[in-house]
Design a protein around this nucleic acid. Structure first.
Lengths: 202, 202, 202, 202
DNA sequence: CATGAATGAGAGTTCATTCAT
DNA sequence: TATGAATGAACTCTCATTCAT
């Protein structure tokens, strides 16, 4: 769990044993939801996967939905935590930084396909959390663009349209080349996208 | 129904009365799926909406999933049919044409939110149809870009990355400014996106 | 069902077959609740008893509680309908009429022990219906006493205390001699109670 | 605990600390059962109320039912202990004594509504204890009536019918004016009931 | 073709009870 | 003695699908 925001959705274990059990359920759930989607996943199946009794689920989670929400928030944080250091470390220009972030994101998507699925499905299962995730992500992109504009690196005045456009690009490229296609060269994909972002098609 | 591909999923009515019944179910289903999503929609509720008996559903559709698939294919065709004429009519450059297409798409999304939801949820309910929809859409975009390249209008050699990037942009802008935000000026959104696409950020 | 008051708690069958199914469930439920009490009764068991599928239960009743309420209202009406004619037919004095009513009630209790249990348990399961039953019953007793007073047959001005006292007597005598003791001579019991009611202990 | 009869249902604590824990559980249970009834009460909730660990429950009670039984016996004793002194102290006639007892009972009911509920619900949860309570209570009433008859104070030969009739009166008046109605003047209620008992309606 | 009753597998959830610490 | 995690049987309820009328 990367975030305290989900604190109320799950009970905090008081013992080490409890911590292990909760962790096992969380991991099993991520795998199950990622594979089968929310509705085809069942709590029985999750607890079997986790190697714990059915009842133990309700020791730590209020409901199947609460677990899903907790997972979405967790994954949302994980994506951010994965991409953030790449941006911090980046020394080149702003647009190149977005390219590096995209590549990090693509790699993350490929190696955590289930996270991808979970966040995407949240649009239907936990719309508020889904919204929050994308609004936050867009806000962070916009902040970076604005900082770049302040440094004189941008040819345009950035706004929300740019942020959502970039995010949409990233998500769909993640879907196409990270999730659907296991072979694609992610460096090349990111480079092509970066070129598009920098100079456009014209 | 725009497609013969769904022929097996639904029975073709032999009488006019049957045709009306099937149409009523299809329309009710679009509304229901759009509002509640696939899993929270129920066949009882759809048939009540349609004003037909529960049993009649199975006269025309093999299953709930078959109905959903039929609907996805139908909607996919409708999106295409909505955007195509705009492109045909367009006389300016290739990039501007994409901008016009985006605007048409945003307007469609805003006035047919339920279609949006259905196609999106297909990722989880009918992945093959979802894939087909986006692969087709990307292919059409790529074809247009290649035609533009052949006419010497493009500064880059277009490939699938460009197609998916553009599509991702469009989808997320549709989500943000067509579906989530009912007030946004879609013309401005499309213009900003078009500028980004044409000249990039740099 | 003696009453339309429970109309919303249960679906009205549209076919004869449906009517039979609903009746079977109602009868099975009366037996089951009477034997095991509300909480130890299960819907599975009720439907097995009724010889119908589990799902059929929910075709006719919203929930286990709704069924119980419907039953309480039904039984309440049945008790009333059992006792009313005895009172109408009675030609003697008002106090004797109450005695006759008590005897009719005791006989009913003995031959419908499950009804007794259901109404009693309603105090905990469906308090509103339980209250309504006893408030109505007390009101009817009071009306009779007032009519008797108007005819000059009573030595006291009747009020709610009398009505509830008489009702309490009846209920407990029903419990003791109708339900707990299958051998007691109900005529004698009613006679003794009637003497008490008429002349007191003093 | 007023009674040794529940000795087997609960473990006798060996330490002072244990005694306090058991007491806390007993009090919490009385409140919980009184508020929610047997089935809607849970052991987790009772132990939380009592401020002890869930596991401690089974250190002192065999089961949820055993606890309930212990409580019924306790409450039964408490009702008796409340009413007895009033009878002992009473100097007037036997019927007036019953009136005073009723008033004491009504006051007790009003200020211990949960006890009322617990004993009443015992009819369904612990029928044997419920029976025992009412058989005992009736036996005590009958004894008093017989003593009064021996002193020549009664116009009738008392029997079980009288005892149960009086008890039923008392219970229902307790329900109506002690539990349901918090405003009623209990002195007046008892007086009216007493007059009825003494001279009847005729 | 239309109707709606019947079916039952399967889901989420609760909670008394056990037991390792 | 106290603690609280673990257990799983049992329950209520849903709903896609079948089928007799």
């Amino acid at each position: 769990m990367s975030a305290e925001s989900s604190a109320r959705a799950l009970r905090i274990p008081r013992t080490e044993r409890g911590r292990r059990t909760q962790r096992a359920i969380l991991d099993a759930a991520a795998a199950e939801f990622g594979e089968k989607g929310f509705h085809d996943s069942s709590i029985v199946s999750i607890t079997i996967r986790a190697g714990v009794a059915l009842g133990s689920f309700y020791t730590y989670f209020e409901s199947k939905e609460a677990l899903f929400k907790a997972l979405v928030q967790d994954m949302s944080g994980r994506v951010r935590d994965q991409v953030a250091p790449v941006l911090t470390a980046h020394t080149g220009g702003a647009v190149e930084a977005e390219g590096a972030a995209l590549e990090a994101f693509l790699r993350f998507a490929r190696s955590h396909k289930e996270i991808y699925r979970i966040i995407d499905e949240a649009e239907f299962v936990a719309p508020d959390d889904w919204r929050a995730h994308y609004l936050n992500t867009a806000a962070r992109i916009l902040e970076r663009l604005q900082a770049a504009r302040d440094r004189g690196e941008l040819g345009v005045e950035p706004n929300e349209v740019h942020a959502w456009a970039i995010m949409g690009m990233n998500v769909f490229l993640g879907l196409r080349f990270g999730v659907m296609d296991a072979e694609a060269d992610l460096g090349e994909v990111a480079a092509a996208a970066n070129a598009l972002l920098k100079d456009g098609l014209g």
